[in-house]
Design a protein around this nucleic acid. Structure first.
Lengths: 206, 206
DNA sequence: CCTAGCAGTGGACATGTGTGCACCGTCACG
DNA sequence: CGTGACGGTGCACACATGTCCACTGCTAGG
């Protein structure tokens, strides 16, 4: 009795999630069949239903899981606080490191955000919007944004999130040669700097 | 003999392309079956092969077609040239108008860029990179970028293209209520202004 | 005119798919 | 100590899918 009943269940649940993640590496949820997953896990197709109602349901679970780890990362970013110009570099480093470690999760999110069952798509986009809002409140705490309108803060953070998502996409898509990756990271740094310089000169000119 | 043989062929070819585009509105190429397309068009499954080798082949044709019209749009943008601050607004207007008109094409590209067969994905991304390069040479002609390095030009144009793609995504994804769309457009304007202000203050500070 | 070529047909086949049902063995709890 | 709940099995069914093949009818070109 070293392993309880619930542990066993959780273990095959994990196996299903991992199998789905792996199979999604070069396809998409909508092209993923229950039977493929079952075969990959090593269970019989109908056993799948003991854990999820449908592939779509599985997808929602994967979205949750992915964003749990992503939010953990964002906490790290926020902890690395307020020494200004260094914040950009360290934030990007954390982002890139996380993308590398959670490669499958990011690949999944990036892919299913556009394709994927409607419920999954909306879940992902809702989550990303949430990230934008949090970033906006963070930005509000920064020096120099005192007189910004909430609207402008929202728009700025949307722009930054878009750029970061694009960076994550690029890393996930690229072959993981260290030089290509270094290039992508460097580009992201420069882009963020450009955006922030634009932000610093914003209210003062318009 | 009012319609020639070749015209008939071209006509059902178009019908296939349109059917695929329509069916892709709420799924993805990888989840699209030859038989669905055939049924939608009203031909027998095997007749499909008279026009395309496979669904993947069909996808590549759709990519070509989509970017032909997109490049036509970019020509319009370039024609609207060099009165500075107005360029942003008119460019975005053209973009938005085109997205609305070529709704299916954009939806297709946005979706298959992340999901979709590998060949389709790479074709799309190659095409987008091309757009970035063209934008970079356009930017080089603008006043104030005389002393910019080619690297920085490339990075700036990548940022702008990313933001524009994100805008197109948002429009395609949103319900087409005019107010929501107006909001998206307004956000895009502000973002572009922020980026350009950052660009104008770029070399002068680093 | 008539014949070869070609878009489109119709049926068939092997294989993959979601899901219903009866069943089994074992851990957990009263 | 039992017994019931539950994770997992095995089989079955009704369909969907990609592709092969022999075919038909029209039309464009010699």
């Amino acid at each position: 009795m070293t392993v309880t009943r619930g542990e066993r269940k959780e273990r095959t649940r994990r196996a299903i999630l991992d199998a789905a993640l792996t199979l999604c590496e070069d396809s998409s949820l909508v092209a993923l069949s229950l039977r493929q997953v079952a075969k990959e896990v090593g269970i019989v197709p109908t056993a799948f239903y003991r854990h999820f109602d449908s592939i779509e349901d599985l997808g929602l679970a994967l979205v949750d899981e992915s964003f749990v780890s992503l939010r953990a990362m964002l906490l790290d970013v926020r902890r690395s606080d307020p020494a200004f110009d260094d914040t950009i570099d360290s934030s990007i480093d954390i982002l890139v490191d996380h993308v590398r470690r959670q490669h499958q999760h990011f690949q999944f999110i990036v892919r299913e955000r556009g394709a994927g069952p409607v419920s999954v798509r909306t879940a992902i986009n809702r989550e990303i919007e949430l990230c934008q809002q949090e970033l906006a409140t963070d930005l509000a705490r920064l020096p120099g944004t005192a007189d910004w309108s909430p609207e402008d803060l929202r728009i700025l953070s949307a722009l930054i999130v878009t750029a970061m998502v694009a960076t994550a996409e690029a890393i996930v898509r690229s072959p993981d040669s260290p030089e290509v990756e270094k290039q992508i990271v460097e580009d992201a740094r420069v882009q963020l700097r450009m955006v922030l310089i634009g932000a610093l000169n914003w209210r003062s000119r318009t």
